[in-house]
């Protein structure tokens, strides 16, 4: 009996600890700066985020983001400020809603068109069979064969 109670207490304690650890918590200013700068592209680097770059430009961008966070600007407002200056290019993952969505759409559309073409061909019976010769064509062929046989003697 005591053993069962101890196990139940242990399970409850574990569940409580897990729930405490997983509780929603307020994002700190530093965490917000990290979140935003992870998404921003360093303009003078090759595929590096502002967070990961050691360049002077990235440092200035991090300082600007930190200042905007201190000014209680939302993430969307801060991102909009960079978008206004650099366009969608400044994001390492540009939003899909812009014209860049075509990059994803065109291959899918081409694949769908190819599948539709193949399906259409298969349904119509594959390679088209030659139609039967008309009586005029048969007569002309017979005449030609007779002529060639006569010429061969």
């Amino acid at each position: 009996m005591n053993r069962r109670v101890l196990i139940a207490i242990a399970v409850l304690a574990l569940a409580g600890a897990l729930a405490f650890a997983a509780r929603p918590h307020e994002t700190t200013a530093d965490e917000r700066v990290d979140q935003i700068t992870t998404e921003l592209r360093c303009p003078v680097c090759q595929g590096l985020s502002v967070k990961d770059s050691t360049s002077e430009t990235a440092r200035q961008m991090r300082d600007l983001v930190a200042q905007r966070v201190r000014e209680a600007k939302t993430n969307a407002e801060i991102e909009a400020e960079f978008r206004a200056a650099y366009g969608d290019w400044i994001f390492l993952s540009p939003p899909l809603a812009s014209w860049t969505g075509l990059v994803w759409l065109v291959p899918v559309a081409a694949l769908a068109a190819g599948l539709a073409l193949v399906t259409g061909r298969l349904r119509s019976g594959g390679v088209p069979q030659p139609s039967a010769p008309t009586t005029t064509e048969v007569a002309a062929l017979r005449e030609r064969v007779a002529r060639e046989e006569a010429a061969e003697g």
Binding site: Q60, M61, D63, L64, F82, A85
Partner: peptide, 10 residues
């Protein structure tokens, strides 16, 4: 502090 360059998207 580079703020003007950033605002122009340099």
């Amino acid at each position: 502090d580079g703020r003007v360059a950033l605002s122009y998207g340099v």
